[in-house]
Amino acid sequence: MMRRSATAVIERNTTWSGSFATEPWEAAWAGEAVFFVRQLSSEDGASYDSLTARVQISPDGIRWVDEGHELILRGDQEMAFVRVGQFGGWLRLAGDVGDGSARVIVYLSLKE
């Protein structure tokens, strides 16, 4: 049986500054996931040193708890990722940019 898969663009051309969290995403059908955060070049000169995004899980899409994995995307990097499995029904990223801001596109690649 071929495994089903789907990639969602959960943030697109979004500017993060300070604390951030992606929109809740339902992923109960999937067994494994990879978040990619890609930095977009920005005409408004958005820049930052480093951002950390923690994987969070939830039983209901409303209340969230850290899953334990995280990614770090430095200001001079284009993209970073984090893998996660056994996450139950909901996924999101939450984190901090620190000083400055980052313009990003965020992918969530899911697979059965």
Binding site: I10, P59, G89
Partner: peptide, 15 residues
Amino acid sequence: FRDLRPPMLSNASTW
């Protein structure tokens, strides 16, 4: 058009 949220598969779980 910039921020239209995309579809996802849901099993409609509530708290």
